[in-house]
Each structure stands twice: as C-alpha cells, then as structure tokens.
Amino acid sequence: MARTRSENYDDIHRGIMNAACDLFANQGYMRASIGELADACKLSRGALYHYFESKEAILFAILDAHVRQMIADVETAIAGKSTTLDQFRAAIRAIVELNARSSQEQRLILNDLSFLSEADQQTIKTLERRIVEMISDLLVQLDRQGKIVKRTKKIYTMMLFGTLNFSHTWYDPKGGIGPAEFADMVVDQFLYGITTQASPSDLSARQRQRA
C-alpha cells in the first residue's frame, strides 16, 4: 500500500531542495553527503528518501525547476511587450533578475550538470535550448545589418549568454546597480556598444536627469 502524503509534503519537498541547493553550491555536489544534507534539512535519512530517491534526484529537481522558471519568466516578459526591442530588453531583464535571486542554482547548473545521468542532462539541455532559441530569434529580428547569419548566429547568442551566465561570479545585485539596470546595461552594450551613438535607454536616462 502506497504511503499517503502529509499535508506539508510540498513545503518539506521545497525545503529539501533549498537546503540542498545551498549545501551543493557552497560545499560542492560531490563532497556533500546524504548525511550532511539530512542534517541541513533537520530530517532523518529515511525521511529524506521519502521525498527523493537519491542525491542525484535532488540535483536534477533543483536544475529542472530553475530552468523551467526561467522559461516561464522569459515567456511572460516577452508576452507583455509589443516591439522586438522591448521584448528583448524584457527577456534579458527576466533572466538577470532570476539569476540575481538564484545565484546558487546558477552555480550548480554551470558546475554540476555533468553529474546527472545522460538522460537527465539531455532534459536540462533541451530546456536550456528553448531559452537560447527565444533570445536568438529576437536577436535575428533586431539585426538590421545582416551580421547574424547561420554561420554566426550561435556565436552572437552565446557571447550574450556568456555575459549573463557568469555574472554571478562578480555581480552583486545588492550593490549600486540593481538587476533591471544591469540588464539594460547588458542590452545596450551588446546592441549599441560604447563607441557608437547613444542608445534609446541612454537618451531616456539623460532626459530624466535634465527634467
């Protein structure tokens, strides 16, 4: 007979994922033991296995939830905007803001994805490709000079994601530049550079300063 779920099953399930995320990110997935995780969750090993069948299953759940949340956030951000430029800016903001809230998850997906089974890795990578394709399609639509062609499309897209994915190593969202402003800086730098004419957001900022 199957065990019935407790009323607080979902809360405990989320709590395990949160504790595991912190432990794996700070100590390293391979070095973190089930015993240490049970201690961090204030659960017995037996209780822990009631929620997840293995340490690997916990890692997969963390990464899967993070990437699915990013897809949902980007889709919602794009849906609320009419122009391609506004959609692109909103999508980058959504990614930056999620990563700012989830820097531990970002560390895990960059450093520990390879510890999952091949099947689970492919699941995560397929989800990641959906995000990359959404951003890549917007870049193609924004390209007015024909720079983004089949040969260069992936390069331009991954140049942008290189900035976004590794910002957790140095960017402090609690510093003087908030996530939304940082996202706009990334967009402006990527689309307009720093040696060309002022970008639309630069002009708007200057107008606000003069007002």
Rank of each mutant, 00 (worst) to 15 (best):
115 F>P: 00
80 G>W: 09
125 K>L: 13
89 R>Y: 09
89 R>C: 07
113 L>P: 01
85 L>T: 12
47 A>T: 15
147 K>M: 06
157 T>R: 02
130 R>W: 10
85 L>V: 04
51 Y>D: 06
14 R>C: 01
145 Q>G: 13
114 S>F: 10
157 T>M: 02
113 L>M: 11
158 M>T: 15
32 A>R: 03
111 N>C: 02
12 I>Q: 07
92 I>Y: 02
70 M>E: 13
52 F>R: 02
24 F>K: 01
73 D>T: 07
83 T>I: 08
35 G>T: 13
148 I>R: 00
35 G>L: 06
47 A>I: 04
100 A>M: 04
111 N>A: 09
61 A>W: 01
152 T>F: 01
79 A>P: 08
86 D>R: 12
73 D>R: 08
103 S>L: 00
72 A>W: 11
31 R>Q: 15
155 I>W: 08
154 K>V: 04
143 D>N: 04
153 K>E: 10
32 A>Y: 02
70 M>T: 12
49 Y>Q: 05
158 M>I: 11
101 R>F: 03
48 L>D: 08
154 K>N: 12
75 E>C: 04
136 S>F: 01
68 R>W: 08
93 R>L: 08
91 A>I: 05
141 Q>N: 12
90 A>R: 07
19 A>K: 08
117 S>I: 02
70 M>F: 01
114 S>D: 12
137 D>E: 14
113 L>C: 05
36 E>H: 09
81 K>W: 04
21 C>L: 05
147 K>N: 04
74 V>R: 03
156 Y>D: 00
103 S>T: 09
69 Q>P: 04
21 C>Y: 01
153 K>Q: 14
150 K>V: 07
21 C>A: 12
119 A>I: 01
35 G>R: 13
87 Q>C: 10
27 Q>M: 08
89 R>M: 05
150 K>L: 11
97 E>K: 12
16 I>M: 02
114 S>A: 13
85 L>M: 14
117 S>A: 10
135 I>K: 05
155 I>M: 14
129 R>F: 11
148 I>D: 01
46 G>Y: 11
112 D>H: 04
154 K>Q: 14
56 E>V: 03
24 F>P: 01
128 E>T: 04
19 A>M: 08
67 V>R: 02
81 K>A: 15
136 S>G: 08
47 A>D: 15
67 V>Y: 07
139 L>F: 04
79 A>I: 00
73 D>F: 01
71 I>C: 10
88 F>P: 04
36 E>P: 04
26 N>H: 13
100 A>G: 05
76 T>P: 00
76 T>G: 14
